[in-house]
Amino acid sequence: MKRIDLHVWGPLIALIGLFILGALLNPAFLAPANLSNVLARSAFIGLIAIGMTFVITQGGLDLSVGSMAAFLAGITIMAMNALVPIVGESWGTILLGMGVALLGGIAAGYVNGALITKARIEAFIVTLGTMGIFRSLVTWLADGGTLSLDSGLRSIYRPVYFGGLGWLTWPIIVFAIAAVLGEWTMRHTRFGRHVEAIGSNDRVARYSAVDVERVRLATYVLLGVLVGVATILYVPRLGSASGSTGVLWELEAIAAVIIGGTALKGGRGRVWGTVVGVLILSMIDNILNLTDLVSPYLNGAIQGVIIVLAVVLQREKRTAE
């Protein structure tokens, strides 16, 4: 029984440990501005990782999300710039642009999901393919350079990333709402239950009259929507997109899901675990930047160790029956 508790609480204990470590190493860590910054930067990966939790729990995988975010950022910026002469430098343009990001996310997720469920191609292969396609498209749209948002729009749009309720900036608020809704959906709705059932044994799910393909497809569309939301929050931060936007986000998102205790083979999803996983990853990054104990260049290595360690610690000890 004690072991099982460790599975559930392990990531949270690690997060608290990191928090204390950060506070001890550098008092600046505890500054509200710093914590706010850590949380806001977690929000992009966090939103994507919440969607990824559903995809992985049903037994799937999506490697394309980083490229998808870059592509969506690209078309969003292009759409907004194109709308300026028509709608003007106003919130209307920005809202329409946001619509483009969301619709684009739905479409991209649908393409991934349809290829996987209807054409029956392995998720790994499909999303490896679309990862390349999205990345290449945004590079082509930017003609190898950078797509920049109209400067007038940029000043209107800025508060979406930097504004909010005091230190609680909009990305943090949206991330928190998505986390609560995600956890509720996984735990207390038919959809979440079906997702776990399919990941646990899709044959049983099919025999139980669960619409396996539709549920699988829905997880990819949900992930696409969340990538769209992440893009909406990301664009005002830099006001630009390029071929190097969102590189390796997919791996960070997958890592956060795994650290949070969701099994890579599917069947058991923990949304709040994913949130903790995201926070662990960005806190490590932040602590390394604030202290000169270890070079920040070793961030990737430390994250790698954490991922492997998390899986080892959470490995279910097969209880004999």
Partner: peptide, 28 residues
């Protein structure tokens, strides 16, 4: 292999086929 989710608890298995008739939220 086709009847029960062996790594899930009893209620999850009991209600799996019937959830579609229960609406979106699962009433605990």
């Amino acid at each position: 292999e086709a009847g029960l989710l062996l790594d899930k608890n009893l209620p999850v298995n009991l209600t799996l086929s019937a959830l579609d008739m229960w609406g979106f939220r699962i009433d605990p």
